[in-house]
Design a protein around this nucleic acid. Structure first.
Lengths: 201, 201
DNA sequence: AGGGTGATGTCACCTTGCGACATGACCGTA
DNA sequence: TACGGTCATGTCGCAAGGTGACATCACCCT
């Protein structure tokens, strides 16, 4: 390749900056245009103006291009759990409410788009499950650091994640218009009722 | 290939019977001997005495060779839920107890082996998550068929699955010796306490 | 000017997974 | 007995995912 291709911003940098961001954007576009299965990594790389190999150095695999935010989510969650004084389950639920406000509020459209892509591919659903599943150990550790026993920490975390998952599903549903934070509170209340009720049949 | 190879049981059948079973067994052996990543589908097929293409016709992908029982699990679960009169959460928990007795009891060693293979590979963990995740819609539908509303059905199912997951984790833990059914009951009680407690901090 | 560093491109390669077609045992029917 | 259909399997070739090894070149430090 010639020494000074137009793509390379001579006198500035060898490559255009933020290859990662461009790859994420390109992936999202292409997945929406053609679907996940029909998009190749080479396509994504080409649209982002980098090599296929660069994609793999940045992302590990094709699915990861859709899941870059999950690290931040875990971070906020753990911090919020560590800083509250509430009872365990309430602490996890409150932490998810905070996540709802700091990450998801005002991004409904983007989240819905991402969600519809994920729903269209079992491979992506697997990855989503793995990502939310990976939150459990992290939050459980944060809870244990506050002196809770393993059982309580695990169950509070798992139940909190359940609440979030269900609330999230309602939030992205086409006809919904409540805020994610409110839905979390609502679902938490319902979960309490379902698990504690001697229950009407 | 010659018309009557010894592998083909001439005068009986063209191929040895139960290709599926042999592939599952070969996969389990090889995953244990060399690890999941280090085993290729060609290896599995060779050991089972069939072609690689046959493997894919039977299994869809390499991971599926480890997850053949999951259909049966769903079946039992749905049937058990449909036939009980208990309150929703209790119904799901009871259904999982039944699964524990009909499928898992007396198979601890085999389950532990399988579990250790799964733990060694993120790819397999994803698939496991997907399989248990797939139970949710099925059980929820069974619950709804009994007249329950969507919310209650979903949350009872999700909480029941949580109970099962946690109990299962304890059961396969190396130092455990309680029965899976008992662990399920135990965890269900703990979950009730965690979600309903106004809770000590 | 010279050398080190780090992100990127290039190339070769293995594995997964699938479409298309060939093969041969089995089964029903004439 | 022969014929044809069906079905599971084998064979071949290939696109795409994913990786290791090495080359390249802007940038930075001295």
């Amino acid at each position: 390749m010639s020494q000074c291709d137009i793509r390379y911003h001579c006198r500035m940098a060898r490559w255009q900056p933020d290859a990662r961001g461009r790859l994420e954007a390109a992936a999202l576009e292409l997945f929406r245009e053609r679907g996940f299965e029909e998009t190749t990594v080479a396509d994504i790389a080409t649209r982002a103006g980098v090599d296929k190999r660069t994609f793999y150095r940045l992302f590990g695999d094709k699915r990861e291009a859709l899941f870059s935010g999950s690290g931040q989510l875990e971070e906020i969650l753990v911090k919020a759990v560590a800083e509250t004084d509430a009872a365990p389950f309430e602490a996890v639920v409150a932490a998810f409410r905070q996540v709802a406000e700091e990450i998801f509020a005002d991004r409904l459209e983007r989240v819905r788009m991402r969600h519809s892509i994920i729903q269209s591919s079992p491979e992506l659903q697997e990855r989503e499950l793995r990502k939310t599943g990976a939150l459990v150990p992290a939050v459980t550790v944060a809870l244990r650091a506050k002196g809770l026993d393993e059982s309580t920490a695990t169950l509070a975390t798992e139940s909190g994640v359940t609440v979030f998952r269900v609330a999230y599903a309602r939030w992205v549903a086409p006809d919904s218009d409540a805020s994610l934070a409110d839905l979390i509170t609502e679902v938490a209340t319902e979960l309490r009722a379902v698990t504690s009720a001697a229950g009407r049949r």
